[in-house]
């Protein structure tokens, strides 16, 4: 089977900081892979390593079957990178930006012109193509940036937090563009700290934390892996959190910062009744209590012990905007 990514024992250290701490990951071609993790989990380092911008300290990495350490230039022929910040030149028009990147990808003048026109069309920027990029909205700039990574018709598209900082409408437009690309058969690897984004776009989700793979699979597999429904308790007073955990038993977890207690259960409704009674007997005032299917948030919490919004002390890849 053709592989999009094969990483074995991938490590990257910056002094004492282990950005990647022995990451193993193998994903076949023909998929959309979302690498999900909080700030500082190693997502950006991973994507920079795949894009040949960062050299791993140890381990092996093959991208579309090509060894990154030995044939970086071959890898560069096969990838298109769109970063966290729109890397387009504001003083050029959209069309000029795309033509330049197309020329640098190796197209001759005529092919570069055709590729730029096709991508402008595809990204819904045909009418804005001759305007200077500094007059574009943030969402338009991000789509142009995505387009710039496409003009070389790469086999693998690398998107580092493609929607961070975008308003909901622009975010949706970018999602549609990415889905469209995937439907045309481009492999996509994107990093994100948004669970809904991973759930919506990805065939395979790889959860990483502290530079290691924590779990991978389809969204459904990951939820089934957790296996159980969840009782969600919101207490009225933060001071009651510990008492609520005591009342619910050793499997209950406090979700820090959200005044919530969280308990995986196997016998749904019966255990919900038991929980209500236990909390009632302890005299703890509640805002809400409910039984629900696990979300990716729960999966993440169960696997890493913290939520995606908590950077767990380190933040090397920018700010979380949510």
């Amino acid at each position: 089977m053709e592989m999009m990514i094969e990483a074995e024992g991938l490590r990257k250290e910056y002094g004492d900081v282990k950005a990647l701490a022995g990451l193993d990951l193998a994903v076949p071609s023909g998929k959309v892979l979302a690498v999900l993790g909080p700030n500082g989990a190693g997502k950006t380092t991973l994507i920079r390593t795949i894009a040949t911008l960062t050299r791993p300290t140890a381990g092996t990495l093959r991208v579309v079957g090509i060894d990154v350490a030995h044939h970086p230039k071959q890898v560069r022929r096969s990838i298109g990178l769109a970063g966290q910040y729109a890397a387009v030149e504001p003083a050029l028009t959209g069309r000029e930006n795309l033509r330049m990147v197309a020329r640098l990808f190796g197209h001759d003048r005529a092919a570069a012109r055709a590729a730029a026109d096709a991508v402008l069309e595809q990204m819904g920027l045909a009418e804005a193509g001759d305007r200077l990029v500094r007059t574009y909205s943030g969402g338009m700039q991000r789509r142009l940036d995505l387009g710039a990574s496409l003009v070389g018709a790469p086999r693998l598209l690398l998107l580092d937090e493609p929607t961070t900082g975008l308003d909901p409408r622009s975010r949706n437009e970018l999602w549609l563009a990415i889905e469209d690309l995937a439907a045309r058969g481009t492999d996509v690897l994107l990093t994100t700290q948004y669970l809904d984004e991973a759930d919506r776009l990805a065939d395979i989700i790889a959860i990483i934390d502290h530079g290691k793979l924590v779990a991978s699979g389809t969204g459904d597999e990951l939820k089934t892996q957790l296996g159980r429904d969840v009782i969600d308790v919101s207490v009225k007073h933060d001071g009651d959190l510990q008492r609520a955990v005591d009342a619910l038993g050793p499997e209950a977890t406090v979700e820090v910062g959200n005044s919530r207690v969280w308990l995986p259960v196997t016998r749904g409704a019966d255990e919900l009744i038991a929980a209500v009674q236990a909390l009632g007997a302890a005299g703890i005032p509640l805002d809400d209590i409910g039984l629900r299917r696990p979300t990716l948030d729960d999966v993440f919490l169960a696997l890493t012990g913290h939520t995606t919004e908590q950077a767990d002390g380190d933040a090397s890849s920018g700010t979380s905007i949510r």
Binding site: R76, G80, G83, A86
Partner: peptide
């Protein structure tokens, strides 16, 4: 800082 050199470095040039 704006990532334009990252794009250049990711191209086969």
């Amino acid at each position: 800082a704006s990532g334009q050199y990252d794009r250049m470095r990711s191209l086969p040039i």
